[in-house]
């Protein structure tokens, strides 16, 4: 077998493998979060007093990081910049997944570049915060540094391709789009690109087993997703519904 064919085979297999682990892993976790019962009402003040308020509260925490804002402004600003830069970069990458590219994805390209530059800086800022405050330093461990390092490397290899090695975009798109359409095509032999891919696969596989599950878990946090009306509406504990049971 020719080396380039072998390489394509390996990367195609890894890509599907990583995506499978990611999807199955995240789905399994979310399923568990969803189906684990909440025996009691435990919303934290200020909680909405009717169910209508719940999505608004969660929206505030997911989109604006409201609770973090109350807790620590410096981490908040770092967190906001990091997450939105990450989001922009991911959206920018959608151009590789569609043909023809949707207009809105193309219109994000310029902003996506800035986000791409901001992303590693935000990671460095978060790293600096983590190590410069004795409290966060104390609670941080290998896993926390690992994710930061991983995302940093993904961002940097990405930027390298944008500004330095510049692989053939047509080939890159060909490979990614081939994966999307289940019609695998040759992986471009460009070490930086291959490294970039490997790191992304690592992130995907690592995701469901790590704290990165905060992204889905937040929607299931009982202190945030319950409303404060226990006197008006009787909450039933599913595993012990009746008195004297």
């Amino acid at each position: 077998m020719e080396p380039s064919v072998l390489l394509t085979l390996v990367f195609t297999a890894m890509a599907y493998g990583a995506i499978a682990v990611f999807v199955a892993g995240v789905a399994a976790k979310l399923y568990r979060y969803k189906t684990t019962p909440s025996p009691l009402r435990i919303p934290t003040t200020p909680a909405p007093i009717s169910p209508i308020g719940v999505p608004f509260r969660i929206f505030g925490d997911v989109v604006f990081f409201n609770s973090l804002f109350k807790g620590n402004k410096w981490t908040w600003i770092g967190g906001i910049v990091f997450h939105y830069a990450f989001l922009m970069v991911v959206l920018r990458h959608l151009r590789y997944f569609f043909y023809p590219e949707p207009g809105w994805v193309m219109s994000l390209q310029a902003a996506g570049i800035y986000a791409g530059i901001l992303l590693p800086l935000a990671v460095l800022y978060l790293l600096m915060r983590r190590t410069s405050v004795d409290r966060t330093m104390f609670v941080s461990s290998l896993a926390d540094y690992f994710v930061l390092a991983l995302i940093f490397c993904i961002a940097v290899t990405g930027l390298l391709m944008k500004y330095y090695v510049r692989p053939f975009m047509v080939d890159v798109k060909g490979f990614v789009y081939g994966l999307v359409t289940l019609n695998p095509s040759a992986v471009p032999f460009e070490p930086v690109f291959l490294l970039h891919l490997l790191l992304v696969f690592t992130l995907l596989v690592y995701f469901p087993f790590s704290k990165l599950m905060h992204s889905g878990g937040i929607f299931f946090s009982p202190t945030r997703n319950q409303c404060d009306n226990p006197r008006e509406k009787r909450h039933i504990n599913p595993w012990s519904p009746n008195l004297g049971a």
């Binding site: 979060y33 684990t36 967190g79 409290r135 966060t136 009982p222």
Partner: peptide, 24 residues
């Protein structure tokens, strides 16, 4: 307990050690 309490299951998984709670 992990099967009985959503709070426990979710909270043991999702802390990112952001530090926001550390001085509270």
């Amino acid at each position: 307990l992990l099967k009985k309490y959503k709070s426990l299951q979710v909270y043991l998984d999702i802390c990112v050690k952001c530090g926001s709670c550390t001085d509270k």
